[in-house]
Design a protein around this nucleic acid. Structure first.
Lengths: 215, 215
DNA sequence: GCCTGTGAATCCATTCACAGCT
DNA sequence: AGCTGTGAATGGATTCACAGGC
């Protein structure tokens, strides 16, 4: 990293990831150039935001012209370190877990599931379409270099989420993506992203009612 | 709503939804009282944040004592309007879509899927375990009161996401939860929440590398 | 003229710190 | 003494507005 460390807003990183989606499409259809205005429109953000976000990492555009699609995308990939493969493990192979393990979009982006765990005895030993064999949650162990995983994904029910997180952490995992409806304790030195979509629904429901309520 | 309209931070709503999760558990195990400190710890937020968030909607606690679990939960349910049933439709019944339609947690919270759509001819006409029959995406029509739905959920591939959103909007839907890796155009008068988890992974990957890079 | 890059201004959100009630 | 409720202070993030280069 050649950046003057750490003054980068958290939200900037997520948006930079967001920008890469339309850029990929433009690259496919061989569009050469893109303006911050156009890119912003596609991502529902302000054009100045796009420019500022990118400016944290360098000067990727040309004044009066715009950004070169191919170059910008390649810069973004470098920033996000999405130019390499990341190994994931999943805890909980219900519908949601299977949906993720079999998601080709993730694989295309370099996120590869290399282990699957579950607490339900009926599921243990089963072979997933992707080739993984479901192991007992309790067998999550310190990851041995080769077969190790770097990111743990939790798709268990709320009752098992914390246990799964604890196991992952014991196994040396430093980043967890938690889809369960249970807020995992933020442990020292481990990143946790919670994606509780029932909260998103609550949010929508609230705003729906308040709009209707207002008029 | 008896609130002095609209000065409520967006993030407050999401956190209030968050608070309800541990409260539900406390209610089950018949804990009477809870302090902002304890609740905050369980949700990984600051205690003052909890108090301020709640204070936007009223004075639910007792000084020197704390909050009554049952009362607080009931107030939160009123705030979030989660004391009624919301009807949802889903577009895209792949793994992810099925995971949502069959998710009992959502049903428990009052979110009920009443229609399912897909663009894949092979899926159309199939009956889901929940009893819904998959209809063609193109048949999303203006919702007729009775069978209507209020929130549209998108779990199609990126290529179909915008079309699904457009159809939902034409059908009169005012709120959309989008899980596809395509950012749906924010349309006039319709709320859209995007939950692109591949972005969350990018975010984790970035932070993982920058931590390792630093030491 | 056009579009980027960025300090300055604004807006929003979080946290502090203490008054107020039990 | 204990814990809430909240103005004031702080800290971040977004947007403006214009200088700078094509």
């Amino acid at each position: 990293m050649t950046t003057k460390d750490s003054k980068i807003p958290g939200a900037t990183i997520e948006r930079i990831a967001l920008y890469s989606r339309p850029l990929e499409k433009f690259l496919e259809q061989e569009t050469e150039l893109i303006s911050s205005e156009r890119l912003a429109a596609l991502c529902n953000v302000n054009p100045a935001q796009v420019r500022k976000d990118l400016s944290y990492f360098g000067e990727f555009g040309v004044r009066g012209i715009g950004y070169n699609v191919r170059d910008l995308l390649s810069e973004i990939r470098k920033i996000l370190v999405s130019d390499r493969e990341w190994k994931l493990a999943i805890a909980g192979v219900g519908n949601m877990g299977k949906a993720l393990v079999e998601n080709v979009n993730l694989l295309k982006r370099g996120y590869k599931f290399v282990a699957a765990f579950d607490s339900n005895p009926e599921r243990i030993g089963k072979r997933l379409p992707s080739g993984l064999t479901v192991q007992p949650l309790t067998s999550i162990g310190p990851s041995k270099e080769e077969s190790g995983f770097e990111i743990g994904v939790i798709t268990t029910g709320p009752a098992y989420a914390q246990a799964a997180a604890d196991s992952f952490i014991r196994a040396g995992v430093r980043a967890i993506l938690n889809f369960s409806a249970f807020q995992v304790r933020q442990p020292e030195g481990c990143l946790v992203e919670n994606v509780d979509f029932s909260i998103k629904l609550d949010d929508l429901a609230y705003h729906l009612s308040s709009i209707r309520g207002k008029k």
